[in-house]
């Protein structure tokens, strides 16, 4: 498509990640744009249905447990099951984890395995650094397959930590399928609601850099411990 003001078009394009100035074939999108959209959607869907490699988990020395749901379709339909842990997982946590740690780190693929694959190597050591700088001690970190954020309540009931920080893959978008969130809860136990947690979202290379997100989490956790609370009322 030839634009009236090609330079102006570039300025508009630079100002937004939205798909503008795409041209058309009659009233329909051009072939390239249409296929690009489908390709980005395919990447997002793959990320939902993908899984985190054992190589990454081994490298960072995270052991893995299942949530109550092992099937992806059921995981999508039944968020309540992703918030619970089966007896086998509970046993494993009791065996392998330090009881009642100050800070419990939990990682889950959630809705995007890609998010974990591409960010964990950067955010995790930066998070450990920030805990060390704040003089905080972490328990035994682990990975939960197909968990929901609310799973931190179930984990809280078992391990009784002061704070849980949960790194979990976000619902993928078309701009990126690799966005991760960090959810924080002070003394999470059964009954804790969303509004009592805090979230730092949009963590990926094009958003909040994972190393800086990790660095910030330590200060947030220190503040939560100081104020003995977490929740939306506490500004990030």
């Amino acid at each position: 498509m030839v634009f009236h003001d090609p330079e102006g078009m570039e300025r508009l394009r630079k100002a937004t990640p939205a798909r503008i100035g795409t041209g058309r074939a009659g009233t329909r999108p051009t072939t390239r744009e249409q296929l690009q959209l489908r390709l980005d959607h395919a990447a997002a869907v793959d990320s939902v249905y993908g899984s985190v490699s054992s190589t990454l988990l081994d490298e960072l020395e995270l052991f893995a447990v299942d949530s109550e749901v092992t099937d992806k379709e059921l995981y999508l339909k039944r968020p309540d099951l992703g918030r619970q842990l089966p007896e086998s997982s509970i046993r494993l946590l009791r065996e392998r984890c330090i009881q009642a740690p100050q800070v419990q780190i939990v990682v889950s693929d959630g809705l995007s395995a890609d998010a974990i694959e591409s960010n964990l190597r950067d955010i995790y050591p930066a998070l450990l650094d920030s805990l060390a700088v704040q003089g905080l001690t972490a328990g035994t970190p682990f990975f939960v397959r197909k968990a929901r954020v609310g799973c931190m309540n179930a984990i809280g009931d078992i391990l009784e930590p002061e704070v849980i920080v949960m790194l979990i893959g976000e619902r993928p978008g078309l701009i990126t399928s690799r966005s991760m969130s960090a959810y924080l809860g002070y003394r999470p136990r059964s009954g804790m609601t969303d509004s009592q947690r805090m979230v730092l979202s949009n963590i990926h290379q094009g958003g909040t850099p994972p190393v800086e997100a990790g660095a910030h989490l330590g200060s947030l956790i220190a503040r939560m411990l100081e104020l003995r609370m977490s929740g939306v009322s506490l500004e990030l």
């Binding site: 930066a126 650094d129 920030s130 060390a132 700088v133 909040t208 850099p209 190393v211 800086e212 990790g214 660095a215 910030h216 330590g218 200060s219």
Partner: peptide, 14 residues
């Protein structure tokens, strides 16, 4: 220039 100041500061401290 990057948004990395805190992570870098932490690292230097340690």
């Amino acid at each position: 220039e990057n948004d990395i100041a805190k992570a870098l500061g932490n690292c230097i401290y340690l």
